[in-house]
Measured scan of single mutants.
Amino acid sequence: NLAEVVERVLTFLPAKALLRVACVCRLWRECVRRVLRTHR
């Protein structure tokens, strides 16, 4: 699944970079939201 791969990669990025990549597309924005939720 593409979303799972994107989420896996996003887990390695710092928070500032996550906010930046959330603007790329809807899929990435949803993935960033899930990554941020799991880090809390």
Score class of each variant (00 low, 15 high):
residue 1 N to F: 03
residue 1 N to S: 08
residue 2 L to Q: 03
residue 2 L to Y: 01
residue 3 A to L: 09
residue 3 A to W: 15
residue 3 A to S: 10
residue 4 E to L: 09
residue 4 E to I: 02
residue 4 E to F: 11
residue 5 V to W: 02
residue 5 V to G: 02
residue 5 V to I: 08
residue 5 V to E: 01
residue 6 V to F: 07
residue 6 V to G: 02
residue 6 V to T: 03
residue 6 V to E: 01
residue 6 V to P: 00
residue 7 E to V: 10
residue 7 E to C: 11
residue 7 E to L: 09
residue 7 E to R: 12
residue 7 E to Q: 11
residue 8 R to M: 07
residue 8 R to V: 02
residue 8 R to G: 02
residue 8 R to I: 01
residue 8 R to S: 03
residue 8 R to E: 01
residue 9 V to R: 00
residue 9 V to L: 12
residue 9 V to M: 13
residue 9 V to E: 00
residue 9 V to A: 08
residue 9 V to P: 00
residue 9 V to K: 01
residue 9 V to Q: 00
residue 10 L to C: 08
residue 10 L to I: 12
residue 10 L to M: 12
residue 10 L to G: 05
residue 11 T to V: 14
residue 11 T to E: 09
residue 11 T to M: 13
residue 11 T to P: 01
residue 11 T to H: 11
residue 12 F to S: 07
residue 12 F to G: 15
residue 13 L to V: 10
residue 13 L to E: 01
residue 13 L to R: 05
residue 14 P to N: 15
residue 14 P to T: 13
residue 14 P to Y: 12
residue 14 P to H: 15
residue 14 P to D: 11
residue 14 P to K: 15
residue 15 A to G: 09
residue 15 A to K: 12
residue 15 A to S: 10
residue 16 K to C: 06
residue 16 K to A: 04
residue 16 K to F: 07
residue 16 K to S: 07
residue 17 A to S: 09
residue 17 A to N: 07
residue 17 A to V: 13
residue 17 A to D: 05
residue 18 L to S: 09
residue 18 L to I: 08
residue 18 L to F: 09
residue 18 L to G: 09
residue 18 L to V: 08
residue 19 L to N: 09
residue 19 L to Q: 15
residue 19 L to S: 11
residue 19 L to V: 13
residue 19 L to G: 14
residue 20 R to T: 09
residue 20 R to Q: 06
residue 20 R to C: 08
residue 20 R to P: 10
residue 20 R to K: 13
residue 21 V to S: 06
residue 22 A to S: 05
residue 22 A to V: 03
residue 22 A to Q: 05
residue 23 C to I: 09
residue 23 C to V: 08
residue 23 C to Y: 13
residue 23 C to M: 14
residue 23 C to W: 14
residue 24 V to T: 03
residue 24 V to W: 11
residue 24 V to I: 15
residue 24 V to C: 07
residue 25 C to I: 13
residue 25 C to E: 12
residue 25 C to H: 10
residue 25 C to D: 04
residue 26 R to G: 01
residue 26 R to S: 02
residue 27 L to M: 14
residue 28 W to H: 01
residue 28 W to E: 00
residue 28 W to A: 14
residue 29 R to L: 02
residue 29 R to A: 03
residue 30 E to C: 08
residue 30 E to W: 14
residue 30 E to Y: 11
residue 30 E to V: 07
residue 31 C to W: 11
residue 31 C to Y: 11
residue 31 C to Q: 07
residue 31 C to N: 04
residue 31 C to K: 13
residue 32 V to I: 07
residue 32 V to F: 09
residue 32 V to R: 04
residue 32 V to T: 05
residue 33 R to C: 04
residue 33 R to S: 06
residue 33 R to K: 11
residue 33 R to I: 04
residue 34 R to G: 03
residue 34 R to H: 03
residue 34 R to Q: 02
residue 34 R to N: 06
residue 34 R to D: 01
residue 34 R to I: 04
residue 34 R to Y: 04
residue 34 R to C: 04
residue 35 V to F: 09
residue 36 L to W: 11
residue 36 L to C: 10
residue 36 L to M: 12
residue 37 R to S: 09
residue 38 T to R: 13
residue 38 T to F: 14
residue 38 T to K: 13
residue 38 T to L: 14
residue 38 T to H: 07
residue 38 T to Q: 11
residue 38 T to G: 12
residue 39 H to L: 15
residue 39 H to E: 10
residue 40 R to N: 06
